[in-house]
Design a protein around this nucleic acid. Structure first.
Length: 268
DNA sequence: ACTCAGGTATCCT
DNA sequence: AGGATACCTGAG
């Protein structure tokens, strides 16, 4: 059991922020997270305590980076002071951090996410993992490898309720498996080049690519524009959000807005 | 029953 | 280039 001491860390908020789909509250104050090929149990007995069911070594090897605990989020929150709405949003979302998740998992997860509600996305992902992932025990399964999805038939993929996205999953997995699209090379690219490269993948458009950049490559300057953000920008910023005020970390601001707006709409 | 969901590919003009 | 349209399926 390792106790995290960190400001701006709210596991519940992260689980609800829509950036990850495999972190769930299994009972009050207890979360399970499947990531990095492991199942991590997280206990949040109160607002200021967070206990990970892992060794200190595992924490420093894996989870410190996964939870982005070396980044100071206070500066991001402070910078919204002159914007009443964003100030409220960033205070409400002050425990949200941008996780360092696996790029491959992000690509597949966000391809699935298009035109789906968050519960439906989670259902599909869990079916996919149960069918093609590695059995981790206790009903948990790892995220499938590239070759596992590449080798699956469209018929198999359709059993996971992904519908027309099955073709995208298969094509994307195949092009990556073949080596014609090299995920490992991507982290060396700058933001513009990375975006352009991701857009080559089947089923990946601007929104999905932005999410992959933000959540899979930790490009905090990526700014996914989804229906929620578009609504906020239209209603509160006359259709023009001042991204330049938050240059380099627009993605963090996007998360605050997304999370807060969903709260206002009763989704959290 | 019916709309809409953290969009994208495709087909137009 | 930019706009309209179809699309699997489940949740509300």
């Amino acid at each position: 059991m390792y106790k995290i001491s960190s400001d701006n860390l709210d596991v519940w908020a992260i689980a609800k922020s829509g950036q990850c789909f495999r972190m769930n509250e299994v009972s009050t104050g207890v979360f399970s997270l499947i990531a990095m090929g492991k199942v991590l149990k997280i206990q949040v007995p109160n607002k200021d305590e967070c206990l990970l069911d892992c060794s200190e070594q595992e924490f420093f090897d894996i989870w410190e980076n996964y939870f982005d605990l070396k980044t100071d989020y206070k500066q991001f929150i402070k910078s919204t002071a002159d914007d009443e709405y964003l100030k409220e949003a960033s205070v409400y979302g002050s425990g949200v951090r941008i996780l360092n998740q696996d790029p491959w998992e992000m690509i597949i997860s966000f391809i699935i996410s298009q035109r789906k509600s968050i519960p439906a996305i989670k259902t599909s992902i869990e079916k996919l993992c149960a069918m093609l992932g590695e059995d981790l025990g206790d009903g948990y399964y790892s995220f499938p490898t590239v070759s596992a999805i590449a080798q699956a038939s469209i018929e198999d993929l359709l059993t996971t309720s992904v519908g027309y996205r099955a073709k995208y999953l298969k094509e994307t997995a195949l092009v990556i498996q073949s080596g014609r699209f090299d995920i490992k090379m991507l982290s060396a690219l700058d933001d513009d080049a990375l975006l352009e490269k991701l857009l080559e993948l089947s089923g990946v458009g601007k929104k999905v690519a932005s999410c992959v950049m933000l959540f899979g490559f930790h490009r905090l300057g990526a700014f996914p524009e989804d229906v929620w953000i578009n609504k906020i920008v239209a209603n509160r910023y006359s259709g023009n959000f001042p991204r330049e005020k938050y240059r380099g970390y627009e993605g963090v601001i996007q998360q605050y807005m997304f999370f807060y707006e969903r709260y206002l709409e009763g989704k959290n």
